[in-house]
């Protein structure tokens, strides 16, 4: 199978799943869960580029999600910008910030990189929590409606909020996945992949290591920011939790759980970690216990993540 065919196959599978799932949804609540999975998956796709491709870790990407989310809350309220445009503004701000801090931060390696990115995430969430006059503090602030649904209604298409955001998030994920798959295929993608193996080796074959790392960092920041914006827009409300340390950890866990090298793995990881708390509500007392155990067991038995391990097993049987 050629790489190009693989790309279209993955996108087609994703598109069919997104389009077909509503056929079996028993209630509006499932649209909400679906939309959450897609939004989470979008930010995780960005992390796949950073962690899986370029081999760099970040424990602070929720900071970028926070910037995206608060851009959608603040820009309409203070600058009179349309919420849709605010999403773009948030992405630009996140990208520029990543560019600015990326160069010094990415010189660090391993755990030092982890603590530096962690520090960045904490700084963002601290500003959002403390600048109460602007952000509403820990109580959060309202986000203006994007105004598309009334427009659709005027055009004679009545859909519920849940259905609307399911569609928007699904489309956003498809676009994000398509762009990521293109990148994976490109010379840039191959150059980034070389970093994952060994930075020293990569530099000896003429790859500008710092530049490729920075590129991956900026791209993943933009993904996280857009995902944060989409979440804020569909919730109509945002609090500093979105930029918190736990959210960063959750994002990395989703990426690693699914299989950090692939886009479909990202969706799988996001789906599992989003569904788990919903499935476990009956055993709420044991939720943390189960979540922790799942993380450990998957990592022990499938250190490359779920998807690559499953694929290897399927292929192994085929041979």
């Amino acid at each position: 199978m050629t790489a190009a065919r693989g790309k279209w196959l993955q996108l087609a599978v994703l598109a069919i799943v997104i389009a077909a799932l509503p056929l079996i949804f028993p209630s509006g609540y499932y649209y909400r869960v679906g939309a959450l999975i897609f939004v989470n998956a979008l930010s995780v796709v960005g992390l796949v580029i950073l962690i899986g491709l370029a081999g760099q870790i970040s424990l602070g990407h929720a900071g970028f999600a926070g910037i995206g989310a608060y851009a959608c809350a603040l820009a309409p309220a203070h600058l009179g910008l349309h919420p849709g445009l605010a999403l773009v503004l948030g992405a630009v701000v996140s990208g520029l910030l990543a560019l600015l801090i990326g160069r010094p931060i990415l010189r660090l390696k391993g755990y030092y990189l982890a603590v530096a990115t962690l520090g960045f995430g904490i700084l963002v969430s601290m500003v959002l929590t403390n600048e109460r006059a602007l952000t509403g503090g820990p109580d959060g602030m309202a986000v203006e409606d994007i105004g598309l649904r009334p427009l659709l209604r005027d055009l004679g298409w009545r859909i519920s909020g849940g259905e609307f955001w399911y569609g928007i998030s699904g489309i956003a994920l498809l676009i994000g996945a398509w762009m990521a798959l293109n990148l994976l295929d490109s010379p840039t993608g191959r150059a980034m992949r070389a970093l994952h193996g060994s930075e020293v080796a990569a530099s000896t074959v003429g790859i500008d290591v710092a530049r490729q790392k920075l590129r991956a960092f900026v791209i993943s920041a933009v993904y996280a920011s857009v995902a944060g914006s989409l979440l804020a827009l569909q919730n109509g409300f945002v609090t500093p939790d979105i930029a918190g340390f736990m959210h960063s950890i959750e994002m990395v866990t989703m990426a690693v759980l699914g299989g950090v090298g692939s886009v479909i793995g990202a969706v799988l990881g996001a789906a599992i970690l989003t569904l788990l708390p919903q499935v476990l509500t009956v055993f709420a007392e044991y939720e943390q216990l189960v979540l922790g155990a799942v993380m450990i067991i998957v990592m022990i038995f499938m250190p490359q993540g779920l998807l690559p391990s499953i694929m290897r097993r399927i292929r192994g049987r085929g041979e």
Binding site: I51, I57, G110, Y111, A114, I249, V252, T253, V256, L257, V260, L291, G292, A293, V294, M295, I296, M299, I300, P303
Partner: peptide
């Protein structure tokens, strides 16, 4: 390394 981080966070 990233898997080990996830394992200890899971723990």
């Amino acid at each position: 390394v990233v898997s080990l981080i996830i394992i200890t966070i899971g723990a």
